[in-house]
Design a protein around this nucleic acid. Sequence first.
DNA 1: TTGAACCCTCACATATATGTGAGGGTCAAC
DNA 2: GTTGACCCTCACATATATGTGAGGGTTCAA
Lengths: 139, 139
Amino acid sequence: MRIGELSERTNTSRRLLRYYEEQMLIVSTRMPNGYREYDERFVDRVMQIRGLLDAGLPIRIIKQILPCLDKPRTIHFPDATPEMLDTLRRERDRMTERINCLIRNRDSVSEYLAEVSKGWRPGTAPSSAPAQERVPAGA
Amino acid sequence: MRIGELSERTNTSRRLLRYYEEQMLIVSTRMPNGYREYDERFVDRVMQIRGLLDAGLPIRIIKQILPCLDKPRTIHFPDATPEMLDTLRRERDRMTERINCLIRNRDSVSEYLAEVSKGWRPGTAPSSAPAQERVPAGA
DNA sequence: TTGAACCCTCACATATATGTGAGGGTCAAC
DNA sequence: GTTGACCCTCACATATATGTGAGGGTTCAA
């Protein structure tokens, strides 16, 4: 597909797709006329990138963990230097810290909302349906 | 305490503490000479802010959820407009999405690391191998 | 009384992720 | 063959979090 379709399907501006390519998070082949050509799996890939970005990871880190995230898990031994593995371990721990921080704070917000809706004027229905929970905490 | 001590105890530059104040995440009283004065609880408060920031939340959101995070849970009913509660609910859901995204990806990284360490040449300790291999992209 | 170690404000600089637009090709439909 | 919807590169603009430094007070101890 061309960049326009990928853009629509991932809800990501063309500008950003080109930026991610420049940052080497994704690649594209070129058609004879110079247009970028993407194959299907880039839809998921781009959405994964968006998710990580939204979760607060910077591009330079995403670039490093992206090779670990292939779905049929193809490990590239030659690519994994000990330095990269160390970085990966540190980053995994950092992600765990972020997760725990977010969980703690989200739970506080949830609690607050629960208490407010309990004590709130009983005439008004607060319509709060917690979209929550699926949280083991392991490293 | 003055800004220098808070800075050291929270590992946050003075510049940033002033910035957080300007953004109204924290407040300070002033001593007669104009120096900022903070009380103990700002140590935790600032660390909480740092955690949320590191987890990817922007300051304008942190500002909104901060009132829900007081430890002895003092709910300010008059402050909570229905709009703010809606924002809060949306933000809680957004945090949950981030959490799940981070968990998913962290688990993938963990898995990758586990598989690499299993399949690695058993003679070599993972952080002391001769660092001479093809390195196409990485740190 | 001088100097070190604090503090103040103000303002410009940087990095990162993103938007916007100019100037210009390609291609299919009318 | 013109039009409209695509695409390209390049470059400047914006927002956010942060660094850095100038120019200048305050406090305290040697």
